[in-house]
Design a protein around this nucleic acid. Sequence first.
DNA 1: TATATTGTAATAGATAAATAGTACACTAGG
DNA 2: CCTAGTGTACTATTTATCTATTACAATATA
Lengths: 129, 129
Amino acid sequence: MQFDDKVPIYLQIKRVIYQEMVTGQLKAGEQLPAVRQLALNLTVNVNTVQRALSEMITEGVLTSKRGKGNFVTEDQQRIGALKTQLVRAQLSSFYQALRALNLSDEEIITSVQHYVQRRGSQDDGHVND
Amino acid sequence: MQFDDKVPIYLQIKRVIYQEMVTGQLKAGEQLPAVRQLALNLTVNVNTVQRALSEMITEGVLTSKRGKGNFVTEDQQRIGALKTQLVRAQLSSFYQALRALNLSDEEIITSVQHYVQRRGSQDDGHVND
DNA sequence: TATATTGTAATAGATAAATAGTACACTAGG
DNA sequence: CCTAGTGTACTATTTATCTATTACAATATA
């Protein structure tokens, strides 16, 4: 996997796993691949994977069972809250950045609409739910 | 100034100066504060400021005159292009992040609308152009 | 011609992050 | 009981970033 070398890799790994939980690629209670396997998949060191996972364990979205594996929380509501939290964080930083470039609220909204339209008419196989 | 310790400071400095150019706090052709002064303002080392500025000089948005100072490009169009570029980068990463969280195009648009509305009704002294 | 102010370069040290490698602890299954 | 597979811990090394410090080069001005 390719990472942005201006952002710590362990943070980018967290983001990937968050996304898999939110999209349901990883379901509540499901076991994650072994840390050594994750390290291979991500072409990254085991310690780096471990750092990402241990933070997520502290946050309560993962649980660890020594000798067995790492598991997504059973708490489906926790995952829902995670999605809300991640979406809100994106909205906040996006809004703040565009305001800092002097865009009005209206301009921000229409810029998103136009961007989405442009992407929609641009035959790159993405689907719209 | 406070920085996010997960992102290189020199990149965050570039972002701040970009914003000042785009918003007109720094006008085309205008002289920047001396690097040593900028370092004081930002509570950062001169070398770190220098790294940010030297990259922006390479990009052509700043020019340097040894013994005189650093200056914003005279090319107003260049600044306009900079704004376009920065806005587009924000849109792209924002869109990609929310798609990765399984939001549809419609949901992305309405989430922005609701976020802006919520902020608008929330008396925190921001103005709407 | 000096002196102050500007940008620029170079060195050395500190810290965070990532890597490689080794070892240990717990669990399941033959 | 032994072995394979799991998470976890620790050390050592490398790289990028930031800092502190010193020095030098170019410009303006008294």
